[in-house]
Design a protein around this nucleic acid. Structure first.
Lengths: 273, 273
DNA sequence: CAATGTTATTCGATATATAGAACATCCGAT
DNA sequence: ATCGGATGTTCTATATATCGAATAACATTG
């Protein structure tokens, strides 16, 4: 039985992640890297230890190991630690073998152009997070933007309703996670459930200013294998400018997502010939 | 005293990295991620364990911890593991706070155009590896290419001669590392030392077909703080086509590298005003 | 320049992560 | 179907990674 776990970026979550694990050093290492990533300046041993609730000596061991693996850099003069380029190498490998980004990019570009919105391809990691893996901007002047690699809570906004609708998670877990979310205009859990139900019926989700007021978000689910939610296409538009064409945008999104799902679950071209 | 360590990507190096460490789980985790990154297909517990010389049960713990941290994904159907998008998030953070890439990109573009070569910005991690962090291609038809995040042995090719010339490492360590390199047309250590000396005199290094026959590589060092080698600009050209303009390319590279060094060691714009 | 707080680091006792074998489960071949 | 070989997973004794205090190096202040 696989015990439920959390990614560790705060002392609280780190503690939770470690208590069940048989390899806590790895959770600590992950927490340290995420902390160094978030930090604007390099950090010393104490800062890291205090922030994460670690024992300084242990923290030092972790940092030294990460330095040896070239994931963290160490400045002997200032005795400060920061992220090192080694993490780039891992990311490159991941990108190389990720067909979703390749397949989705043209679609995202096209939709961004046609509808004048910012389009995202997001990877659904689980009930905890989604990660932006592809971006397309329209030529519009005013644009919302984010970066490849950004993480968001899984259940937030339109994508969240897709995950709830098609992810096949028990309602209790959904409710627990839902309660931790921060919205500009939070819906009640009941309202949200209604919207999730609607999402299931329509095949796409809409967030009309809930997550960020004045911003409309539309999302449609992408499946990797049959019945296995893995990604989503997301359109982000500013305010009411969107509202007129919303339904045509939504159906375009849905059909594009459907096409992608078919391509992803089918055999690859190499195995084809 | 900081003990010398190695990054772990083979069973041999992993063993070496672990024996001195106080956090071997982290070395194992790094090795596992690198292995999964290199692999073309997702791997099972046994494959990973065998490849890295780990005990299966330990390997399982490592993999589970990495899954929990969203660095590795697990397919419950096939029981296979592969890299997960979480590594992207770390890479984004690293890129965000790396001024070298921002500063270097325009320079690289310009040089690539002017001389019709492929330009790289590389990050010097130590005596073990360099990592490609920025790329610019010329419009030429025939082009050598690589990817952001690629790792190369530190002492190879023209960059290697720069590191040897300006890195201030003891000769014994250089020779040990030098002996592990693979070249198309390997120079002897004595020949190489002469070239290193020349590099120190000229302020740039040339590799004329040693690393890859028919390929000329020129590199110039970039310092972050005074006397602290951190990056290099690299030009890659195919064969003799380059040779004519080689010295003008080299001096252009050297002066660009010099300018970058000044920008990097000077105060940032924000602290300026 | 001493005093004081802070930080990095070492070191030894002990809680615990790991190794190895045992068990369970899957898959292909006979 | 049945076997055989491989895989994934659990279990437990023990080598060891972690903790906490003590030390050393450093910077900051009176």
């Amino acid at each position: 039985m696989m015990t439920k776990r959390q990614t560790s970026s705060s002392p609280r979550e780190l503690a939770k992640a470690m208590e069940t694990s048989k390899a806590p050093a790895i959770s600590r290492a992950a927490a340290v890297m995420r902390l160094l990533g978030k930090s604007d300046a390099p950090l010393g041993v104490q800062s890291v230890a205090r922030e994460l609730g670690l024992v300084p000596s242990t923290c030092l061991h972790v940092l030294r190991a990460l330095v040896a693996e070239e994931f963290v850099s160490f400045d002997p003069d200032t005795k400060r630690y920061s992220l090192e380029a080694g993490v780039l190498t891992l990311a490159r490998h991941w990108l190389r073998r990720n067909q979703f980004t390749d397949l989705a990019q043209p679609t995202l570009d096209r939709l961004a152009q046609s509808f004048g919105v910012t389009m995202l391809g997001v990877h659904i990691v689980g009930l905890d997070h989604i990660i932006v893996v592809a971006i397309a901007q329209s030529g519009q002047n005013l644009q919302l933007s984010t970066q490849i690699g950004s993480r968001f809570p899984a259940l937030i906004s339109a994508t969240g309703r897709c995950i709830a609708a098609f992810g096949d998670y028990p309602e209790a877990r959904l409710e627990t996670k839902f309660k931790t979310l921060r919205w500009d205009e939070a819906p009640t859990f009941e309202q949200w459930q209604t919207q999730v139900k609607q999402t299931r019926a329509q095949g796409y989700a809409v967030d009309d200013g809930n997550y960020i007021s004045g911003v409309t978000v539309v999302a449609a689910p992408v499946w990797k294998a049959r019945a296995k939610l893995s990604h989503a296409l997301v359109a982000i538009g500013i305010g009411s400018a969107q509202r007129s064409g919303l339904s045509s945008l939504a159906t375009a999104l849905r059909s594009s997502a459907q096409t992608l799902s078919n391509q992803l679950s089918g055999e690859t071209l190499l195995e084809w010939s």
